[in-house]
């Protein structure tokens, strides 16, 4: 009740849920509550449910778990005539810095460390925020969500680089590059965070606390 009160205090906006409508996630058309499928695009109409946040959390945690070995294990196994190199992500960044390749170092650092960690923080923040019914931040949250959604796929840039290098540099004993165990972990981690972002229902940003609509 106090939530309701607080919500009423700060939220003058009329949401679809307040109006007894349910929005289609496919095309955005709203239908009266209880309509099973969208009449326009045929997508199944799912009522907004805070339980969807469980999936967000689950994927997020899985992504985090895989992010640990992704940073501890080597990403690239480089074998050349003279030596054998194993580079972790952070090790590679440090090495690039040592060679004064600041630009490349910044890109690798951004794509492999800043973005994934930012994504974890952003998703976790969103999931926590919608659970706490902060409608006031709705627009900001939506923008954050869109950024996360957009940027998520670019985290795979590392994995692509590793995949391409491994495919191209197979010159027998002269030089060989193979993906390290971190590459798979990193790919899984990125995939799981993308799934996490996907499972987040942006309608929750606008929706009130779970019980308010049902009991009114």
């Amino acid at each position: 009740m106090e939530r309701h009160q607080s919500a009423a205090l700060v939220a003058p906006i009329l949401t679809a849920r307040d109006a007894g409508l349910v929005g289609c996630r496919g095309c955005g058309r709203v239908w009266p509550q209880g309509t099973p499928t969208c009449g326009r695009c045929g997508a199944r109409l799912v009522p907004v449910d805070v339980r969807g946040l469980q999936a967000v959390w689950a994927w997020l945690i899985a992504g985090l778990i895989f992010y640990v070995p992704a940073n501890l294990y080597p990403m690239l196994l480089t074998k050349t005539l003279t030596g054998h190199l194993e580079n972790t992500i952070l090790g590679g960044v440090i090495e690039l810095l040592a060679h004064h390749n600041y630009g490349v170092a910044a890109i690798v650092f951004g794509a492999s460390i800043v973005i994934p960690i930012g994504k974890f923080i952003a998703i976790a923040y969103l999931a926590l925020a919608v659970g706490n019914e902060r409608r006031a931040g709705g627009h900001r949250h939506l923008r954050l969500y869109e950024v996360v959604e957009f940027i998520g796929r670019w985290s795979m840039i590392d994995v692509f680089v590793v995949a391409i290098l491994s495919a191209l540099v197979q010159l027998g004993f002269v030089a060989t590059i193979n993906p390290g165990p971190a590459a798979a972990s990193f790919a899984l981690s990125v995939a799981f965070t993308m799934l996490s972002a996907q499972s987040f229902d942006p309608r929750l940003i606008w929706r009130g606390p779970p019980d308010t609509a049902g009991n009114k």
């Binding site: 469980q54 999936a55 689950a58 899985a62 778990i65 895989f66 640990v68």
Partner: peptide, 16 residues
């Protein structure tokens, strides 16, 4: 109230 989806991080943890 728990979703089946929670198996995913469990499996991930177990694998790691």
């Amino acid at each position: 109230r728990l979703s089946v989806i929670w198996l995913v991080p469990l499996v991930a943890l177990a694998i790691t």
